[in-house]
Simulated assay, not measured.
Amino acid sequence: MELSIDLKGRTVLVAGRAAVADRAVRRYRAAGATVRALGSPCEDPAALLQGVHLVAAVDDGRPGWAALERACRAHGVLFAREEPARHRGTVTLVGGGPGAVGLLTLDAVEALREADTVLYDRLGPHETLPRLAPVAELIDVGKRPGHHPVGQRGIEELMVVHALAGKHVVRLKGGDPFVFGRGGEEIAACAAAGVPCRVVSGVTSAVSVPAAAGIPVTHRGVSRMFTVVSGHAPLTEEEHRHLAGLGGTVVVLMGVGTLPQLTAGLHWAGMRADMPVAVVERGYSASQRTTVGSLSTIVADAAAAGCESPAVLVVGEVVRTGLELQGEVARLAELDSALGAS
């Protein structure tokens, strides 16, 4: 059973050896309570209950706390037992999805709630972290185009150092840790340091951001497959040939900067010039925007619209399908005009 109690302005007595009760003390303070700490059992616990609304006893292996529980029952003070803080640090790689809090999984929310340290980037739901991780130290390790204040090796070192200090570290990443998220490298760093690490999958932006724009990556009779590509660096001629020959839908992450090379390469590899293309910027945010065009016009269309990262590119007939499903007559007309011009 889980209870929700408003503790703002109320007094909470946390009982237990400091080494195991520290996390509980920080959590109750974060909830707005006035916290008193009791590190050892005493002979007259009833004298400690004046003005106390809740007693939280953290199990530190000593039997002397039974008298405190009896005193709470006798004086009508709420009494709760809690598990001790971890002695051994751990790391949890959490996929934060495209940034919308509602797309966090239940496991992700639980990991953040139990975190002592959160290393986060700009694509995860970082603006709500003070609420999601109320007792954690929040460290921004976000990378931006041309600006990497903390490199990948530095992030891995931070994870390991905090975990070896006995903390539960959450590495909060945008999307899914294993979809261009360098999660494998971070697991390897933890393994090398002997730090336990687990992965909580996230909703990848490769599927969710097109969906936010109403574009299905597959659709019966239109596309029965989709390929996810990193646009961080230009693709090779062989990769362009492979994508153009596969058919289906091509979804490109981090591809605004390499859009000219992508479109030129796909056209060179045989993809038709009038293939619909969409650029979906800032998926799930209040400023989400979709720019549509064709393989031959999208570079100019994106430049005219001022498209910027973060954005997801979608190449394929599903772009037209998405517009049709939404009944967006105006944008369909724009797309048809672009296709006619290509």
Rank of each mutant, 00 (worst) to 15 (best):
T321S: 09
V55N: 07
L259A: 01
V279I: 14
G183S: 01
P134Q: 04
A269P: 05
M271A: 12
Q50H: 13
L295T: 07
Y284A: 11
V161E: 14
A136G: 02
R113C: 13
C307S: 15
A286D: 15
R81P: 04
V14D: 14
G99I: 03
F226R: 07
A188S: 08
V203I: 15
L7Y: 10
G174C: 07
T34A: 15
L325E: 12
H267L: 11
R23G: 15
R36Q: 12
T321I: 08
G184E: 00
A18E: 15
D59G: 04
V118N: 01
G166Q: 01
L48A: 13
L54K: 07
E308L: 13
A80M: 10
R86L: 15
A188Q: 10
G142W: 03
V252Q: 05
Q152T: 09
T227Y: 01
A189L: 02
G102D: 14
H148K: 12
W65S: 03
A31K: 04
I5K: 01
E127I: 08
E317P: 10
V251D: 11
S4V: 14
C307H: 08
W65P: 04
M1C: 11
G327N: 05
E114Q: 13
G202M: 03
G166T: 03
H87W: 08
E114L: 10
R81L: 13
A19Q: 15
A211Q: 09
T128V: 11
S201K: 03
G9F: 09
Y120H: 09
H232I: 07
E239Q: 15
A278S: 09
E328K: 06
D107M: 07
A333T: 12
V161N: 08
G151Q: 00
S205K: 02
V55I: 10
P276K: 00
D140M: 05
S223W: 01
P234K: 01
F180Y: 06
V169D: 05
R23M: 14
A100R: 10
V14Q: 04
A18I: 11
G245T: 11
T291F: 11
T290W: 01
A213L: 06
S4R: 10
S342T: 13
F79E: 08
